[in-house]
């Protein structure tokens, strides 16, 4: 593992650094839990790592509330997501996903940005953020920010829409529709042991329910079931307007089949495609039970 490093201290320096490396090969490093694993296996020649870990800007590593959104900086670690009371109350799905990511030690350093930008189909934070219908704030080396919906952010296995001179600055999660809404929100991660699992299949759900028991908004995303994490649009549509407690067995299955229609899983050493589909169907049904 041999590389050079640049450690900008603030965003202005960061942008400058990116500019000066335009024509050279570089990678960002945040918590390094994905990057070092990759570089230990293979480090390309003349690589420079642009180290985000020493940036002092608070905006990059804080959680902020606005009227419409909760904004989460890309450098927020998984353990921060676990302990933040806003996340716990507003977006249990994200808190659970963060809590079930890797281990205590990894969560201390693993960042939201790193999870997003690795763009693994089994990325747990991605899956939760997708169910929450987040959007991505992307900054370029001119310090310009533009927004991209999270679904457009992922364009293939381990591929994002980021250009070379761009980085992920934050994600914005829209606030829940009504303060009074009750939430049925959670993250289901399937693996063979209870911890340290890379999801064989994952399902993130975030349902908002009004006083009468009617579902007023729904976000469902599935992980490790397709080349990217998928938002199950038609499954969400199916739920909206229905009463959470009134689903018949047939409706539950219809819903599960709708979720399943977004899955195109592969067989690998962790599980076969058959198993992934079977489980996805079952746990989708389980969400409504």
């Amino acid at each position: 593992m041999e590389f050079e490093i640049e450690s900008p201290k603030n965003i202005t320096e960061l942008c400058k650094t990116i500019k000066s490396y335009r024509s050279k090969s570089f990678r960002f490093g945040a918590g390094y839990t994905d990057l070092l694993m990759e570089l230990k296996k293979h480090t390309p020649r003349n690589l420079t790592v642009i180290n985000l870990a020493q940036l002092k800007d608070v905006s990059f590593s804080s959680i902020r509330s606005t009227t419409k959104n909760i904004q989460i900086g890309a450098m927020i670690t998984a353990s921060k997501l676990v302990t933040d009371t806003r996340i716990e109350q507003l977006f249990p799905v994200l808190q659970q996903a963060a809590h079930n990511l890797a281990s205590t030690q990894i969560r201390q350093v693993a960042t939201l940005g790193g999870n997003m930008c690795t763009a693994s189909p089994s990325g747990d934070l991605i899956c939760a953020a997708m169910a929450l219908q987040a959007s991505c704030e992307i900054m370029n080396d001119d310090k310009k920010i533009h927004n991209l919906s999270i679904q457009d952010f992922f364009i293939g296995v381990r591929k994002t829409a980021l250009k070379k001179n761009e980085f992920l600055f934050a994600i914005n999660i829209p606030r829940n529709k009504k303060r009074t809404a009750t939430l049925h929100s959670g993250f289901i991660k399937i693996g063979t042991r209870k911890s340290m699992e890379c999801s064989v299949v994952s399902l993130a759900f975030h349902l908002q329910i009004d006083k009468t028991g009617k579902i007023i908004d729904a976000g469902i995303a599935i992980g490790a079931s397709a080349p990217t994490v998928k938002f199950a649009q038609s499954a969400c549509q199916f739920l909206i307007g229905k009463k959470i407690n009134s689903f018949s067995e047939k409706e539950k299955e219809e819903f599960a089949n709708k979720v399943l229609s977004y899955a195109s899983p592969i067989s690998d050493i962790r599980a076969t495609a058959w198993y992934r589909k079977e489980v996805l169907f079952n746990i989708s049904k389980g969400v409504l039970e």
Partner: peptide, 26 residues
């Protein structure tokens, strides 16, 4: 050396971290 076993755990500012996946310079 790959973040899976925790044998290399140290405390950084009081938090437990896998030293095998942590750059010394940080």
């Amino acid at each position: 050396h790959e973040g899976e076993c925790g044998a290399c755990t140290v405390l950084i500012n009081g938090k437990s971290v896998n030293s095998c996946l942590y750059l010394a310079l940080n």
